[in-house]
Simulated scan of single mutants.
Amino acid sequence: MRTSVIAATDRARPVGGRAGFARARRGCVGSPPQDFPRRSSVATNDRQAREERSRLRTYQARQEVHRRSVRRRTRDNVLAGVGLVVVLALATGAQLFYFSGGPGAPAAEPTPSPTPSAEATEVPSPDLAEDRTWVGALTLNDTSLSIELDGAAAPQAVASTVTLVDSGFYDGLTCHRLTTDGIFVLQCGDPNGDGSGGPGYSYGPVENAPADDVYPAGTIAMARQGGVAESQGSQFFIVYEDSTIPSDAAGGYTVIGRVTDGLDALRADITDQGVADDAADGAPVRPVSITSFIVE
């Protein structure tokens, strides 16, 4: 039995003595395999992964900043374009108004009128003119003029004028323009007082314009924008001396009636006083208001 135990022990002992035994222990199952990652390698890989993620986040952040910058530039360009269009439209409108619709209009044309107001109303039916002559009185300051309106010759314009008179539209409005050279007219009926206003609608075409462009003293006609027949509204002019007013692309000016009495008083009280600043076209020296306007 003893011999057997020794033999078994001798077989288990590695060859080479203690050194061989140590080498055997280093190669036993309990030692780490040669291909298993070392602790330092794991740390290095983790650090590289974090750096990669950091670089990715930085790249993504830069991309987002770039995208926002592009969107902002696009928005700013759009806003700048819209602003430019608005400025150009306003500038164009101002030029058109100055040369054809406002106080700066050439003396050769009675000021066009009326840029319709924002809340447009319906144009009165020509049937309201009743195909007849209307009689009435127009008082400027304290000067009373007897008038008649020809509903048969200018049904649309007379229907509009009668409707505005009946509504009290003209009460207190001014006569903002007087011309004293070439043509001789006193222009009234603008709620803005500068040639730009109207009743909230406009109409056309031109009716009952003289074929020879001659407007006798006492004529009452509708003002309009130069070259635009459908721009008639509330503004009218009274011819206080015979005048030749050239037609334009839209034709002449719609004659709605005439002053039958009081023209001499109009000249003495208002037109003979002249234009402010010794001009030939502009505001009357003596301010003029419509104190009464009636027709029947």
Rank of each mutant, 00 (worst) to 15 (best):
P287A: 08
V162L: 07
E64C: 05
G182K: 01
G274N: 10
A129H: 03
Y201E: 09
L149Y: 11
Q48I: 11
D150Y: 09
G262A: 05
T271D: 04
G168S: 07
S40R: 13
T180M: 06
R11C: 05
L266D: 00
S202L: 02
D277N: 12
E230F: 11
V206P: 09
I245L: 10
A265I: 06
S202A: 13
A153Q: 09
G102P: 07
L263I: 04
V255T: 15
P103N: 00
T291H: 06
F236M: 03
L56M: 08
G218H: 05
P205D: 01
A7H: 13
A268K: 11
Y240S: 04
A229P: 05
T244H: 14
V5S: 08
S289Q: 07
D213Q: 12
R72Y: 04
S289M: 10
S100K: 01
G81W: 00
R2T: 15
F184E: 06
P110A: 01
V82D: 07
E122T: 15
T121V: 15
D248N: 13
V70T: 06
I290M: 10
D281G: 10
T244P: 15
Q273R: 13
F236K: 02
H176P: 14
N141I: 04
Y240C: 00
A7K: 13
V206I: 15
P124Y: 08
L149C: 15
V259F: 04
Q63V: 15
A7T: 14
Y215E: 04
E241W: 05
T92M: 12
P199V: 08
R23Y: 10
G27P: 13
G27I: 03
N45G: 11
P37C: 00
D76N: 02
N192K: 09
V228F: 13
A211Q: 05
T244W: 06
S160W: 06
